[in-house]
């Protein structure tokens, strides 16, 4: 079987290369309110992905919201072994980036809109911060 990789440019990136299964949220992400930070499960009652886990996954969302809780949330989740392995956002604020860096997570933002229209939960995705790309691996 042939592997097809579809690449997308990202404007902002930091961290090491990582490849993992995608969890794609259609709504902006809040570290304080969307997640059970002790299990890695999306727990907000009205969240479209409620019950799904971000553990070991690449978490993808069009944007971010909320305050400074994200500054510690990823480190705390990594400590418990329930955190994601990478983050892809459309737009991002410093809190999410600072939190990802503290936890040693690759994070990219400013991805082409086409990526969000294409990528599906469960697909294999690779983040390559040094190349400023993300790829869907099919």
């Amino acid at each position: 079987m042939t592997t097809i990789e579809t690449f997308f440019r990202v404007a902002q990136a930091t961290g090491a290369e990582v490849e993992a299964e995608a969890v794609v949220s259609p709504v902006a992400f809040s570290a304080r309110y969307d997640l059970d930070r002790t299990t890695g499960l999306i727990s907000r009652n009205d969240h479209p992905l409620k019950g799904q886990s971000v553990r070991g996954k690449i978490f993808i969302a069009p944007g971010v919201q909320g305050g400074v809780a994200a500054g510690w949330a990823f480190l705390s989740m990594r400590g418990l072994g329930v955190g994601p392995r990478g983050l892809i956002f459309g737009a991002v604020n410093p809190v999410m980036v600072q939190g990802a860096v503290t936890a040693g997570l690759p994070i990219v933002a400013g991805v082409d809109q086409e990526f969000f229209e294409t990528v599906r939960t469960g697909e294999l995705v690779r983040i390559s911060p040094d190349n400023h790309t993300v790829a869907i691996v099919r």
């Binding site: 902002q12 930070r37 705390s76």
Partner: peptide, 25 residues
């Protein structure tokens, strides 16, 4: 990530950490 060209020196810092959020890690 944000395209900073350099550092800027600061005169004051304010630390925010809820024990409930940052946990054991």
């Amino acid at each position: 990530f944000f395209g900073a060209e350099r550092f800027v020196e600061v005169t004051n810092a304010h630390f925010m950490g809820d024990r409930e959020v940052f946990g054991q890690a």
